[in-house]
Amino acid sequence: MMSLPLASTRRQLEPGTFEIIAGTAIILAWVILALAAPLFSGADPNSIDLSGLLQPPSADHFFGTDHLGRDVFTRVLHAARIDVWMGIAGVMPPLLVGATIGLVSGYAGGATDAVMMRLVDITVAFPFFVLVIAIVGILGPGLFNYFVALALVGWVSYARLVRAEVLVLKNKEFVAAAQALGYPPSIIMARHVLPNTLSSLLVYATTDAVLVLLAGASLGFLGLGVQPPTPEWGAMIADGQPYVVDAWWICFFPGLAAMSLGFGFILTSDGLSRVLGR
């Protein structure tokens, strides 16, 4: 009878695993807080209480109240519904657009590639945030238009990343084998090339989530994001700005929330890149 190898239980964690677990835990915690926001605090995030304006943090109001007497704690939790969604869903439009362009561009090569790469050159010439502000400013404020702007501006990094990988992958034996078996390029790209780029995409997307979250909160701060009274961290900081001298808590806690979520994304990304060796 063979003895099972017990050494594996004592083996040290692979470097990066701890970061992934801690980072994912932070993100998951925020997802749960966002989903369960109404349970944690029964109050309506927009309920105005003019008798309790600008109250400092206390047992009744953990994070104090704002200039309309709204509970900052409740609003931070409800805002997570927008911001967590923004960070996670916001990377999808540029990822989908960029990965498709990079895949086709790298695999097809030739004129298609040349045209796509000129498009990349043109897009990177515009500072990211400037173009996002310009597009949102012209389309009008709101989350949807922010996602549109992200898709139009943010695809470049994903396209470059995927294209660079595809250029290496398309000369591998398994691609040659698929070609020899007569599979059409679309199948080869989707079934054989794309899956091999997913780990790099994942690492980059988790880093990008921080950028998307912080840029989105900046837009909210500038009044170009989700419109009031819907709570959103950036917009809440803007709300609190006139009162920051006397009532620091209105601005402080939403920023802390954004920071902790961003921290979760970066930790995950760092861990993933160590584990996947990228």
Binding site: S218, C251, P254, G262, F265, I266
Partner: peptide, 11 residues
């Protein structure tokens, strides 16, 4: 990297 710049600026 995770601090929102505008928030830090305000604080």
């Amino acid at each position: 990297m995770t601090i929102p710049v505008f928030w830090l600026a305000l604080m």
